[in-house]
Computed example of a mutant assay.
Amino acid sequence: MDRDDLAGRVIGAAIAVHKHLGPGLLESAYETCLAIELRHLGIPFERQKILPITYRDEDINDAYRIDFVINNELILELKAVETLMPIHTAQTLTYLRLANIKTALLINFNVPLLRDGIKRLSL
């Protein structure tokens, strides 16, 4: 499956979760339900994937955790905030660069219509 098809399936899964739960919950609730939905759809993923970094020749193994890495080719970063801020985009772009992945979806579940909370990012 190509990256666009994969992104479309992941967006569909997120929409299903949002339709069922609605806005206003904590990010962790959406993350857990999305993991169930992705598993149900047979989409391979890693949840809370540790992203190590190196600083001054020292490895920091628990520096960051990516919400989801989908099929080793798509980062999925979840938020449940009033408004996506530039720092959320910067964080996701940094994850892309450090993980050497080309595409990410930044999804804010705290919106009335989920399509208004989805931002696709690429390097």
Rank of each mutant, 00 (worst) to 15 (best):
H40S: 15
L38G: 01
K119N: 09
I43K: 04
R47H: 12
T32M: 09
T92E: 03
I50T: 14
D59C: 05
I15C: 08
R56L: 15
I75C: 03
R115T: 14
L78N: 01
C33D: 11
L98H: 06
I66S: 00
L106Q: 01
K102S: 13
L93H: 04
K19W: 07
P44W: 11
L34V: 06
R65L: 10
I107V: 10
E37S: 04
F45H: 12
A80N: 05
L121G: 06
R115I: 15
E77Q: 09
L25G: 01
H40W: 14
V111C: 10
S28K: 12
D2K: 13
L106T: 01
C33F: 15
D4H: 14
L6P: 00
I43L: 13
P86M: 04
N71H: 12
N71K: 09
E31T: 08
L74C: 07
M1T: 15
P23Y: 07
L21A: 09
H88P: 02
A35I: 04
E37Q: 14
Q91R: 09
R47C: 05
A90K: 08
K79M: 06
L96M: 14
I53Q: 06
N100C: 14
K119C: 10
I101M: 12
L96W: 03
E58C: 09
T54L: 05
D62A: 14
H88T: 04
L74G: 02
I53R: 05
V69D: 01
L93C: 10
G22E: 08
T54F: 09
Y30A: 02
T92D: 03
R65N: 12
R97N: 12
L6F: 05
H88R: 07
H20P: 00
L113K: 10
L41T: 08
A99I: 11
L121C: 11
E82S: 13
T54A: 10
A13E: 03
A16L: 09
T54E: 12
E77C: 01
A90M: 09
G8A: 13
L6R: 04
L78T: 01
I107G: 01
E27T: 07
I43V: 15
H18W: 03
H20C: 08
L76N: 00
K119Y: 08
D5N: 12
R47A: 09
I101Y: 04
R3S: 14
Y55K: 07
T83Y: 06
L6M: 11
L121Y: 08
K119W: 05
T94H: 13
A14P: 01
V81K: 10
I101Q: 04
N108D: 07
T92P: 02
N110G: 05
N71A: 15
L123K: 11
D116L: 10
L84Y: 03
N61H: 10
T89S: 06
P112S: 11
I36F: 15
I66M: 08
I70R: 00
K49M: 09
S122A: 13
I107R: 00
L41E: 14
N71C: 08
